[in-house]
Simulated scan of single mutants.
Amino acid sequence: MSALDDTANSGLAEPSDAHRLDEGALARWMAANVEGFRGPLNVSKFKGGQSNPTYRLQSADGVYVLRRKPPGPLVAGAHAVDREARVQRALSQVGFPVARIYGYCADTSVIGSEFYVMQLVEGRIFWDATFPGVSREERPSYFNAMCDVIAQLHSVDPTSIGLGDYGKPGSYFERQISRWSRQYQEDPQAGRDANMDRLVSELPGRIPAGDEASIVHGDFRCDNLIFHPSEPRVIAVLDWELSTLGHPLADFAYHAIMYRMPPHIVAGLAGADLAALNIPREAEYIDRYCRATGREAIADWQFYVAFNFFRLAAIMHGIAGRALRRTASSTQAIERGKSFPELAKLAIRALENLT
């Protein structure tokens, strides 16, 4: 069994009453379903995870991670931990870096919701996109590793690993814009924003021609990756809740908006001195992805940027709503929800640069 480094473990806390697990029931389930498990269990909760609460399980035989649906009323189709477990199991078949899945439980009577248990991977998580603690000389290799892994994901044939039905292969932008627009409009309690209203109105008419489909992660960021303890190599991609079959350029652009993302929202590089840090420029990063996936270039790049800031704004709007209803799983949810207007403004800025 393996364990995360001190950086990750420092983000642990005692679960609140709302997120406390029945450790006895969970231990009985694991004894019946996880080979080699030996109790008793000691459970602590990772501080992150605004959506699906994530726990560290210390047992007599080692350490595990548990991901569950959050308590309280949920948006239909959201928090699909069964899909998270399924996609990671499938990708492991082709050597893609994911944590090993030990078991999935659909029986909500065990801990009060669906959940799955997976390997706790040994390595490093970087919460800051400038990769502090990495030498200036090595820093480009870490960015290359991130880029190469998302390119690898988009090169996997879904059908070949049993994921041909993992989503609807086509009209991804139309469906996504409709989904997030509806979620935004159906939750007025979380607030309204003029820029977001404009995006809801204008984005559908700016979708580029043509279509593609691949497995997409949906939340590919440096802080959702575990790197090798000492090498610039990704050894596990985490947090697959938003994964589906979708447009690879939507997925890659979401990752690449780190260059424009204010670091106080999520791991971002806006305002950073890239030359001093020896971080590849946005254009260089896009070029590496294109070479890895056999593309000459990415037309309409600003649309993909605008779409992703819009999508993230809608997600943060949803977090704000859950925080108001006290169903969000993170104590940081209220602060995250406040970033919604700023993200909508960034989306408008990209849309206005689209020729």
Rank of each mutant, 00 (worst) to 15 (best):
M1D: 14
A3R: 15
A3M: 13
D5C: 10
T7R: 12
A8L: 08
G11N: 10
D22E: 02
L26A: 01
K45S: 08
P53C: 07
P53W: 01
R56S: 06
R67C: 08
G77S: 04
A78M: 01
V81S: 03
D82E: 15
V87T: 04
A90I: 06
S92A: 15
G95D: 09
F96H: 02
I101R: 07
I101A: 10
G103T: 09
G103C: 10
Y104C: 12
I111D: 04
G112K: 02
G112T: 05
S113H: 09
F115K: 02
M118V: 11
M118P: 06
L120F: 15
V121D: 07
F126H: 05
W127V: 11
T130M: 06
F131Y: 13
R139V: 01
S141E: 10
S141I: 00
F143E: 04
N144W: 05
N144C: 04
M146D: 04
I150C: 00
S160E: 14
G162C: 07
G164S: 11
R179T: 13
R182P: 00
Q185S: 14
Q189N: 12
R198M: 06
R198T: 07
L199R: 00
V200Q: 02
A209H: 11
D211H: 12
D211P: 00
S214N: 03
V234S: 07
I235N: 08
I235R: 06
V237K: 03
V237H: 05
V237S: 02
L242C: 11
P248W: 01
L249H: 05
D251L: 07
A256N: 09
A256T: 10
I257M: 10
M258V: 13
Y259D: 00
R260W: 09
V266A: 15
L274S: 05
I279D: 01
D287P: 00
A306M: 12
F307K: 06
F309H: 12
R311T: 09
H317F: 10
G318A: 13
G321F: 02
A328L: 06
E342L: 04
A347L: 07
R349N: 12
A350H: 08
